[in-house]
């Protein structure tokens, strides 16, 4: 499913839209970077509360479709700038991680 369709359907907003045509195959929820590196899959939307620069590195290395910050959390401007430079999509959801994951799951697995 194309990321821009996922964004419209599950009601999240785009902070950095580096590649909204990216295909989303699933999702992964974790705040542990090593856990994400070990278990997330390329094309997952990564839902996390972590908002520092290393999140961009992990997202890039693991080739996730984007990073979703729940509860309206916003990363700082330098993190957003790095994401733009590295071509990593950043998204913000008003709901909790549980709610975002639930909506994403329901949309991808109707």
């Amino acid at each position: 499913m194309e990321l821009r369709k996922v964004i419209a359907e599950i009601g999240i907003t785009t902070l950095v839209g580096a590649d909204l045509a990216r295909e989303v195959r699933g999702g992964y929820c974790s705040d542990l970077l090593s856990d994400v590196l070990a278990h997330a899959q390329a094309g997952d939307l990564w839902i996390t509360h972590q908002r520092h620069l290393n999140v961009i590195a992990v997202a890039k290395l693991r080739d996730v479709a984007g990073v979703v910050f729940p509860r309206g959390l916003r990363p700082s401007a330098d993190v957003a700038a790095r994401a733009q430079a590295e071509g990593v999509n950043l998204l913000i959801a008003e709901g909790t991680a549980f709610e975002v994951a639930g909506k994403l799951y329901r949309f991808l697995h109707p």
Binding site: L32, S34, L37, A38, Q50, N54
Partner: peptide, 15 residues
């Protein structure tokens, strides 16, 4: 608290 040091680093390298 920053999501480092979960204890999976060396294991990830080996895997």
């Amino acid at each position: 608290e920053l999501g480092f040091g979960a204890g999976f680093g060396i294991n990830n390298m080996e895997q």
